[in-house]
Design a binder for these strands. Structure first.
Lengths: 140, 140
DNA sequence: CCTACATCCTCTAGCGACTAGAGGTGCAAG
DNA sequence: CTTGCACCTCTAGTCGCTAGAGGATGTAGG
C-alpha cells in the first residue's frame, strides 16, 4: 500500500488541502486512516470521491445535494430518480439565473452607454440606480 | 415633520427591517434621529438612499462598491469616472458569469437527458460527475 | 546523526451579507 | 388598562470555505 498524503490527495483531486480537511469535518469524506505520526493516509477511492465533490461544486451543487448524490453513488442499485431530480432542479436554477443575469446585463449596458463621462449629476449610472422606474427590463 | 418608523422605511424602500439596521451598523446609512422612546425616525432622503442601495444590490453590486457609488451620489460635482468604472467592471463580471452558466446549463442538460431513469449504475448524472473527462464543454 | 525545510497537525476566527432568535420596551387601539 | 404588534439591543448562526497561530512530522542533504 502506498500512502497518499493530504497534499497529494489535494493535488490529484484538485481540492485544496484545508478544504479536504473541511469535507472530512462535515462528514462528506470518511476520516482516513492515520500514519504513526498522526498524518492522514488516503486511499485511491478517496481521490475519486474528492474529484466527484469538486466537479459537483463546480457545477454549483450545494453541499447537501452532493451529500445525497454521494449516498446514491455509494449504493448503485438504487433508483436514480433522486439524482435526476437534483440535477433537474439545478438546471432550473441555472436557467433562471441566466435569464436574470441577461436582463441585468442589458441594464448595465444601458447605464454604461448613457454615461457621458462628465460629472456625477449627469451620470446615468447613478441616476438609474437612484430611480428604479428607469429600468427598461423587468429583471427583478 | 411626520416621523417615518423603521417598519415604514422598510416597506417604502423594499429593504427588510433587520437589513436597514444592518446597513446603519456598517455605516452605509447615517444613524437617524430617535424618538423619545429610542425608536428610529427616518427622513424621506433615507428612503431614497435605501432604495438606491436595494437597487444596486439587486444588480449584484457589492457593499463596498455601493459605498463608493453613494459617496459619488453625495457629491454630484465630482467626475463620474469611478461610477462608470464600477458599472463596467460589474458588466464584465456579469458577462463572464453568463458565459460560464451557459456552459453549465449545457452540461446539466446532457446529464439529465442521458439519464435513463433506471438504476444508479446506469445513471449519466452520477457518471458525469464522477468523471470530469466526460464533460463536453470547457466550463471550468 | 543533525539540520533545514516542506508539509503536516489542531484549533480558532474571519469572510460577505445578511437572518434568526432571545429577552425586553414603546405605543396605539379597544 | 390591557392586548398585541412593532420596536429595541445583542448574540449567534448561515454557507463554504480561507487564513493564521503554534506546534509536530517527514524527508533530503551534509
Amino acid at each position: 500500500m502506498k500512502k497518499i498524503t493530504i497534499g497529494e490527495a489535494a493535488r490529484r483531486s484538485g481540492v485544496k488541502v484545508p478544504t479536504v480537511r473541511y469535507y472530512e469535518s462535515i462528514g462528506l469524506l470518511a476520516a482516513p486512516s492515520r500514519s504513526e505520526g498522526n498524518q492522514r493516509s488516503f486511499e485511491p477511492a478517496d481521490i475519486n470521491r474528492l474529484a466527484f465533490i469538486r466537479h459537483a461544486r463546480e457545477l454549483g451543487f450545494e453541499i447537501e445535494a452532493i451529500r445525497t448524490l454521494l449516498t446514491l453513488q455509494d449504493d448503485p442499485h438504487q433508483s436514480c430518480a433522486s439524482a435526476d431530480a437534483i440535477a433537474k432542479a439545478r438546471l432550473v436554477e441555472v436557467e433562471q439565473r441566466i435569464r436574470s443575469l441577461t436582463a441585468l446585463k442589458a441594464e448595465l449596458e444601458t447605464m454604461v452607454e448613457g454615461c457621458g463621462h462628465g460629472r456625477v449629476d449627469q451620470c446615468r449610472v447613478i441616476e438609474v440606480l437612484a430611480d428604479h422606474g428607469q429600468c427598461t427590463h423587468p429583471h427583478h
